[in-house]
Structures are given as C-alpha cells and as structure tokens.
Design a binder for these strands. Structure first.
Lengths: 222, 222
DNA sequence: AGCCTAACGGCACTGCGTGCCACACATCCA
DNA sequence: TGGATGTGTGGCACGCAGTGCCGTTAGGCT
C-alpha cells in the first residue's frame, strides 16, 4: 500500500475532505443512508475508516459539514455591526449571509436537500442545526433587548421567526429549481418577514408596540 | 429466573414503562448519560436489555416518552376547533394544551429539564422534537392561510414564533421553581406573544398588515 | 544524514440497536 | 381436562458506529 499512501499524503486536507463529502452524498443518494457504512464512504474516497472520523464527528456530519462556518458568519455580522444600525437591519443581514453558503454550490445544496428530506436521521440532524442558529440569534438579540420590556421573550420570538423565514425562503428557492436569478426572489421573499417581526431599534419599541397593539385590537374588534 | 419472570408478567405494560423512565432519569442524573448503559437501565427496572427496546426506540427516548401524545393533543385542538373561532385563539389554545403535559408531574419535568440542558445528545433530541411541533403548527396554519397573500411564509413564521414563545415560557416557569401558581404567570407570559404574531382571522389580514406596516414605517422614520 | 511532527492505517474494544429463537403464561376451544 | 393459539419476555448473536492506542510513513528542519 505504499503507492496509495503516497497519493494520500500528496492530497491536502481540504481535498480529502471534499472527496469524503462527495462520496458520502453520492453513496447515500444511490444506495440509501442506512445501507451505506462508514467503511464504504472511506473506501470510495480512498482513505481508511479511521481517517473518516478524523474529518467528521460522525456519519451524519459528512452531509452538512459547513454548519460551524454558518454560525461563525452570523456571529461576525453581529459583532462588527455599527451600534447605530437598526437592529432589524442587522438581523436581516445576518440571515442573508447564510444564503451565500448554500448558493455557493447549488448542486450540492439540492442533493443535500433531497437527502435531508428523505432520511429521518438527517432530518433530525438538520433540526438540531437549525436549533443552533436559532439559539445564536436569540442570544444576540436578548443582549440588545436587555432593557426592553419582555426583551427575552421578544428575542426568542424574533429569532425563531427569522430562522423560520430563512428556511422557508431557502426551501422555496430549492423547490423552484435553484436557479441563479431565483436567489434574488429568494432574498426578497425572506425580506418580507422584516415587517412581521416584533422588533424595533431604539428605546421607542414600547411605544411602537402599544400603538401596533391598539391598531390590531381595533381592527379585530371591527 | 422463574421468580423474576413471574413478577415481570404480573406487572402491566404501563407500570414497566414508568419504572424504566424513572430508572433512566435517575441513573442519567446520578451517573451521567454516557456513563449509563441500556443494560444498567433495564437491570435497575428489573427487566432484560431486549425488553427496554420493546418500550423505547432508543436510549434517548426514555427521557421524554410523551412526545407523540403532545403532538396528538395539538392536532386534536385544531381538528375540533369551531370554524368561526379566531385563528389566533386556536393557536393559543393549542399551545396551552401542551403545558398540561409538563405541569402534570413537575418533578419529572424539572429533572428532564436539567438533563436536557446538560447532555448534548439530549439537547439535539429535544431540538428535533421541537421541530416536530413547529412542523405541525406550520402545516395546520398553512392550510388555513392558503388564500392569504404569502400564506405559507406567514404560517411558517407564526408557527416558529408560537413554539419559541411556548418554550420560553416553559423555561421561565421551570427556572422560577416550577410552582403551581407559577403556571398562571407562565401562561400569561405565553399569551403576550399573541399580539406579536403576524396573524389575523378572516380576509382582512392584508389590510391589517398594510396598516401595521405603515405605522411601523412612520415610527421608525421619525 | 538524522530528527521531529503530523497525518494515516490497522487493530481491538465498548455499546447501541436488531433479528431470531426458545420459553412462560394467559386465553380459548374441543 | 388437555391441547392449540397469542402475547410478552429473556438470551444470544450479529452488524455497525465511534474511540483509544500504536506502529508506520511522508515531509520539513537543522
């Protein structure tokens, strides 16, 4: 196995990682998730079984390996945002940043979407990842709404709404074929949620909420 | 093992199930999740390892076994709701119904909360369950908002907001000690979210949304 | 050349989850 | 009363995920 070892050493870590992801997605799609073992994936990528676990925490992680990166991007948007930028705008920018990760390679995104849609284990896995996004948004928002009445509740609700809208827009885009110009429509679709959020930058949020509630109450009564 | 078999046969399925849950929660808390094997749980409950898997799909399910029941309750609220009842009211009632499942046995709820908070595997498991709640709400709402502009988006956002508010209220209640009278405060806390929802019963929803947006825009500009 | 670090492959081990079979008990029927 | 059927159980064996450990090899540094 000297030749194989030499070839392996020649490949960089990023390349091996890509090949493992490609092999995993291909085998899961062709043969099914449960019917594919880690040995199969590693073998198809030309590495040993033990090496697979040096790149991914487990079998499920090979399908969506850039989750940490998405979290980091969101955190960065919040960290580098100018203090005077409206919170609504920061939230929208953070959400839109994640789109790029999926738009980067549409074909992989579509295969992943189909896989996650079909395999229960991967569905739950994705739910947990979405949960992490939601938690991050909630934490960042709660920090900035600390002085607002029901700030924690408002942060939780807003974060959940943003993440849900993001996923809804993404699903809408993938269902529409995942075309390049569809990205515009996707982002526009996502932006519609901005006015649904119980969110306002600055200390006038309580006043806004009161007036909004009054309007809604009046309309519902009529 | 004739004696043990006789005793086991005497116990009903519900009783065995309760003992398995109790043993699992106790051992997970005392010894840690990863340090507790299925053999330990089964042994502590006086049954064989194979029997454990006849009651639960896996090790994680022994902590929160009444998930299906919660889903069924929500579905029932939606199914039996009177057509003229405002959608906002139905959503709130469905959410509040799930509270009862947790309030039923506070002590177990608190231990489960602590466990889920500590163990990553259980956190992800709970995230997946919350995801199921969200999906159910989304489906029911989308059905009823089919004729509304951006009904699917509105359903997704509203469902996520409701579930998030529910969890936030539940966490708030458990953090406050889980007292009986705290349930009132918990539900009241949950109800605050009603006016944050982009939701309105009847065909006037678009008009309401337009007016709300106009108010918000005016206030944000000023 | 000799050393040193990083990455890899192989091996063995624990534990989860499942299929299979034998056994105990409860019920029904002749 | 004695035998057939059905249900719940324990034990056994197996495949596979994930981890710890160790020997090996490639590539860089002095």
């Amino acid at each position: 196995m000297v030749a194989v070892t030499a070839v392996t050493a020649r490949r960089g870590r990023a390349e091996v990682r890509r090949e493992l992801v490609a092999a995993a997605v291909r085998l899961f799609t062709e043969r099914g998730y449960d019917e594919t073992t880690v040995d199969d994936i590693a073998g198809a990528a030309g590495v040993g079984r033990r090496t697979f676990f040096r790149y991914f925490r487990g079998k499920e992680d090979a399908v969506s390996p850039d989750h940490e990166q998405g979290l980091a991007r969101i955190a960065e948007v919040f960290a580098t945002a100018h203090p005077t930028e409206p919170l609504r705008s920061v939230v929208m920018r953070a959400g839109e940043t994640v789109f790029d990760l999926y738009v980067a390679d549409r074909e992989t995104a579509r295969m992943r979407f189909a896989l996650v849609h079909d395999v229960p284990a991967l569905r739950d896995r994705e739910a947990a990842q979405v949960h992490h996004y939601r938690r991050l948004f909630t934490r960042e928002l709660a920090e900035r709404l600390a002085d607002v009445e029901d700030g924690a509740l408002r942060a939780a609700v807003t974060a959940a709404a943003v993440v849900a809208a993001h996923n809804q827009a993404l699903r809408h885009w993938l269902a529409g074929g995942g075309t390049a110009d569809g990205v515009e429509a996707c982002v526009a679709h996502f932006r519609k949620v901005a006015w649904m959020l119980p969110l306002q930058a600055g200390p006038d949020i309580d006043e806004v909420t009161r007036r909004l509630e009054k309007v809604a109450r009046t309309l519902e009564a009529g």
